[in-house]
Design a protein around this nucleic acid. Sequence first.
DNA 1: CGGGCGGCCTGGAGGC
DNA 2: TGCCTCCAGGCCGCCC
Length: 275
Amino acid sequence: MPELPEVETLRIALAESLMQRRIVDVCIYDSRLRVPIVDERVVPALLGRTFHGFRRRAKYLLFDLSDEWVMLLHLGMSGHLSLVPATEPRRNHDHVVFLLDDNRELRFNDPRRFGMLDVFPRLEESGHGRLCHLGVEPFSPAFTGEHMRRQAAGSRRPVKNFLMDATKVVGVGNIYANEILFRARTHPKRHAGRISASRWESLVVATRDVLHRAITLGGTTLRDFSDLDGSRGSNGERLQVYNRSGYRCPRCACEDIRRIVMVGRATFYCPRCQR
DNA sequence: CGGGCGGCCTGGAGGC
DNA sequence: TGCCTCCAGGCCGCCC
């Protein structure tokens, strides 16, 4: 569930609470993730190190540590980060617990185990296997209608799949793809290669608007997502189409939101507004 | 070789 | 009320 706005919400909270904190202990209670945690690499790289910065690339969090080490974390579907007093009882599915020098703990909990956690020296970042194939960031100047039009040239893929393709633009998952297409009045099945330059411009603007608004609202909490302190994001209440099949379209108010399945994923749109 | 799709997972929801 | 099935979906790797 965490897409770009949820990961960015966590990044902001981490930067506000953990800057210059030192890791005094690391406990890996369960290394079974989509990519198993390599304890003997991760623990020595983290022990005693200090947090110097918190970055995000796509849906990955990058923790900059002292001595030019970087910790890479992906929340997968169900990954949670929480910052709690060390006395707080541990929970089921806590995978990694970082004890900090202020007697608090940063905990990574992931019931479905789709997440990943790794470390590497900063020098190796650009060549990192998980990061090197990623497309442009939605808030970078490189994300333009022209960029998307060129990427899509000749493609018959549905535009929704295209928006969710992290080699083209990163950070857009299923929830926000639906919202972006609604905002840009674009049918999810329209062929990417047949979208006009001006519509790509609209889609780029819609992508930035939808993601930016979600970040300012602390992300979308449908069931799982919560911030470092456990608080919920309020963007879920602002969703226009996602999970709203059968409800009236909030724009035209005369058609019901429809639900179809594309590449195995729930897709919501207004048949009147989105052509 | 672009791109569709299965597999990885568990908890919660809904049906009977 | 309890059990079963289905669904949620990011991402990688397989395969057409």
